[in-house]
Nucleic acid binder design. Structure first.
Length: 229
DNA sequence: AAGCCTTGCAACCGCCACGAT
DNA sequence: AATCGTGGCGGTTGCAAGGCT
């Protein structure tokens, strides 16, 4: 069956040859890819557009970082996965030079096993034991759930309910991740009418961090809440 | 050395969302 | 409003390479 764009023509499948790679790279570096469906024909490839797109994004893009993941990258993956779950594309956006496929493979081959060996459920990041954590940790966990639920709502749905600013109280300690690189194109920027401001306060109502979300939820720095050692 | 098993990763598949018509 | 084409995403598969017996 396959994708509709591939069903009409005879397309090659399987591993890409160096010659095919060269054709694709040459075409995209000189002409770009306005329409992936037209790339195979213009580049002289017997592949479907979807396959070309995948090959370029996951393997041929010049800004890809090859090689094994650093421990810092691994920690970022774990932290963001705790919040957003198996949204590999979201996670990969916070790891320059890494693709969603790479992150997914790394998770399935390494991180998952590591968490299991530590007695942690890779889906929930909670201890596999039936006992709950201490009350202090429960408080943090509760905030993670709140933030997670908000984060996972589609941007449109969130914005439609926002009339000014949204604030959320969380308890320290917490860490933050830097925002996405400035080159990241704003997601659905044109549709945003009500800017969101997230405010994190301490227990005495002092502002700890405030960050506007002028473009969208997608470009918001993700707050990572985890107990400090 | 040979056969089997495991692992990592590239690629495919199926689905969904969205814009154009 | 319905349909179609396309891009994007997560889940899954297949294969090659390396390890083990």
């Amino acid at each position: 069956m396959g994708h509709r764009c591939c069903s009409k023509q005879k397309v090659k499948r399987g591993l890409w040859s160096p010659e095919e790679d060269e054709k694709l790279v040459r075409h995209i570096t000189t002409h770009g890819h306005n329409s992936w469906s037209s790339v195979p024909k213009l580049a002289g490839l017997q592949r479907c557009g979807k396959s070309c797109r995948l090959r370029w994004i996951n393997y041929l893009r010049p800004d890809l970082k090859r090689g094994s993941f650093s421990s810092q990258e691994e920690q970022i993956i774990i932290d963001i996965h705790r919040i957003v779950g198996n949204r590999w594309a979201q996670i990969a956006k916070h790891l320059p030079g890494r693709t969603d496929n790479e992150v997914k493979n790394f998770w399935n081959s390494c991180v998952k096993k590591k968490l299991l060996s530590q007695g942690l459920d890779p889906k929930t990041h909670n201890l596999i034991s039936s006992h709950q954590r201490s009350t202090s940790n429960n408080k943090v966990a509760c905030n993670i759930i709140n933030l997670s639920q908000t984060y996972q709502k589609p941007p449109k749905a969130v914005l439609s309910q926002v009339t000014g600013s949204v604030s959320m109280e969380v308890d320290p300690p917490f860490v933050t991740l830097p925002p996405l690189p400035p080159t990241q194109p704003p997601f659905h920027q044109a549709k945003i009418h009500n800017p969101i401001v997230w405010t994190v306060k301490d227990q005495n109502s002092h502002d700890l961090i405030t960050f506007p979300c002028g473009s969208s939820i997608e470009s918001t720095p993700i707050l990572l809440l985890r107990p400090l050692p």
